[in-house]
Amino acid sequence: MGAQGSMRPQGGGPAPAYGGNIQAQGPWWTAFGTGGFEGEPPLLEELGINFSHIRGKSMTVLNPMSRIDEHIMDDADLAGPIIYVFCFGMFLLLSGKPNFGYIYGVGLFGSMSLYVLLNLMSERPIDAFRVTSVLGYCLLPMVGVSAVSVMVTLDGMFGYLLSFLSVLWCTFSASGIFVSVLQMSDQRLLVAYPVLLLYGCFALLSVFDGTSTAK
């Protein structure tokens, strides 16, 4: 009787139909938030979206002269690259260049090509997710160029110079992260060359209208 009485809640209400302790989970609308219940990881963390990591990797790209941590890509998230690719395509769309198909095609082909080349050049293997993550984060300077193209026409000397500088910025950041992660600093120029070609294609999409036809 003592054991059964201890299972009854205070106030004389009916005892629960199952054993164990009941933990307060908060109001019902907690299930629709991003914080999650008490003792459980947040919803964004379960989905692989960590804004602190996205901010840290973005700052590494924006400050390529700083020391790059070789463990920066231990969590190869694709949330940041997806956001940047989407912003890149939207800015081009607002500037009259609907090149979503070209962006996805060039990005997919470039990521797969770099994945094969890096695994052939390096003794340490690298998976395709990390290659795609690095290339996506280092697209950030090119996103800035596409934002400028909404207000200013880049088909001129200013646009060519701005695109050239952004390609160098993207290449320097991506090659620095790759050689730091793979520990192949002696081969940085060999890594930078195919990366330069890839971001050069994105620069062409920013400057020229891929949907226009020659008359």
Rank of each mutant, 00 (worst) to 15 (best):
M1S: 13
M1W: 10
G2C: 01
Q4G: 11
Q4S: 13
Q4F: 12
G12T: 05
A15V: 15
A15S: 12
A15D: 02
A15I: 12
P16I: 03
A17V: 09
A17F: 08
A17Y: 10
G20A: 07
A24C: 11
A24L: 07
G26M: 10
P27L: 07
T30S: 07
A31Y: 04
A31S: 08
F32I: 15
G33W: 01
G33H: 03
G33R: 07
T34F: 12
G35I: 05
F37V: 05
E38D: 14
E40P: 02
P41R: 12
P41K: 09
P42A: 14
E46C: 07
E46K: 15
I49M: 09
S52P: 02
S52Q: 13
H53F: 06
H53L: 11
I54W: 11
I54Q: 10
I54C: 10
K57C: 07
S58K: 02
M59C: 09
T60F: 02
T60Q: 12
V61K: 11
P64F: 14
R67C: 00
R67S: 10
M73P: 01
A76N: 06
F86G: 11
F91A: 15
F91Y: 14
F91M: 12
L92N: 15
L92H: 11
L93A: 08
G96T: 04
P98E: 04
F100Y: 13
Y102M: 08
Y104P: 00
Y104D: 00
G105D: 00
V106S: 04
G107F: 15
G107W: 00
G107L: 01
G110M: 00
S111Q: 01
S113G: 01
S113T: 14
V116C: 03
L117T: 08
L118C: 02
L120R: 08
L120E: 04
S122M: 08
R124N: 07
P125S: 06
P125N: 03
T132C: 12
S133A: 15
V134E: 01
L135K: 00
G136W: 07
Y137V: 03
C138Q: 01
C138H: 03
L140Q: 04
L140H: 02
L140P: 07
M142Q: 14
M142H: 12
V143S: 04
S146D: 04
A147T: 06
S149L: 03
S149K: 11
S149G: 00
L154D: 02
L154M: 14
L154F: 07
D155I: 10
G156E: 02
G159Q: 06
L161C: 11
L161P: 01
S163A: 15
S166L: 04
L168D: 00
W169T: 07
W169Y: 15
C170M: 10
T171D: 04
T171N: 05
F172M: 08
A174M: 07
I177M: 15
I177S: 02
I177R: 05
F178L: 05
F178H: 09
S180L: 01
V181I: 14
L182P: 14
Q183W: 03
Q183C: 03
Q183M: 08
S185R: 15
D186S: 14
Q187H: 12
L190S: 10
A192C: 04
A192W: 05
Y193E: 02
V195H: 07
V195Y: 06
V195R: 06
L197H: 06
L198W: 09
L198R: 04
Y199E: 06
G200D: 04
C201P: 00
C201R: 07
F202R: 00
F202M: 08
S206Q: 03
F208G: 02
A214Y: 08
